[in-house]
Amino acid sequence: MSIAAPTAKPAREIREITAWDRLKVNKNWLGAWFMLPAAAFLILFLAYPLGLGVWLSFTDARLGRDGVFVGVENYIYLWEDSVFWLSVFNTILYTGVASIIKFAIGLYLALLLNENLPFKAIIRAIVLIPFIVPTVLSAIAFWWLFDPQFSIISWSLKQMGLITQNIDFLGDVWNARWSVIFANIWRGVPFVAITLLAGLQTVSPSLYEAATIDGASTWQRFRFITYPLLTPIIAVVMTFSVLFTFTDFQLIWVMTRGGPVNATHLMATLSYQRAIMSGYLGEGAAISTAMIPFLLAAIMVSWFGLQRRKWQQGGDND
């Protein structure tokens, strides 16, 4: 058998490759197009309002009147405004206390729900309820719970003979603060609990078995296995929790409107009151803008917390 000589194909016309040809097969170019809709949304609904807010904080704009650039005048005014500083204090107290307690209760619930409990599915569903109920609705419910006259809490305590007079939950400065913090915790725990539970379920049971054989007690298994493996999720959850709590508005506005005597005013509610209720857009915008450094700081903490974990990087995923 002889080897057939390769038949010569007719030479194809070779066109010069233009920049457009190259662009058509360029993955980055294609990727940019795919990102365009998302980018448009983000610019329109996030970047533009944020930029506008920051711009307004440097103007003396009021409702119905375009402002003119006044530099940092609004900030100088706020610097000397004791109500503003009170709201900063309230916000930090509110965020700090509520976040820590939400984390503690959420982690506890997650650990509990990760065990083999009877009626586990139902309990998990119940835990989610506070998260599902619209915030305004639960705020109204709390408002009633904390009502000076009709509070069921006061009524119950009176029936039990523990107190003789109704507790003024929302009328007293510190009572009001603890009351709104309590409501926020009630609302925020499910998010923390369910997310941490999802994290717990990614931990392989054989790690606990290995640790058991290695001689770890229940506490040591939590301390050396569960906790370190859960830190990435804790960091994400707590960042979100802090951001949500710091910018909280609905609960406070429905329950106290910032009162009594500004004792529960958060930066968000104060900003709304100044900008929308009183019409001082520039000043309100400045209060909102003043929240940004705090929020950035919270993000940075979790970002650097996540960066540290070398064991998560490299290698395959099993």
Binding site: S206, E209, I213, D214, A216, I225, W311
Partner: peptide, 20 residues
């Protein structure tokens, strides 16, 4: 309890602590 049995076990999926 397992830790007092003085045994060591090698698991099918190794069960190495990923963060150590």
């Amino acid at each position: 309890p397992p830790k007092e049995r003085d045994i060591a076990m090698v698991f099918q999926n190794y069960a190495l602590y990923p963060h150590m």
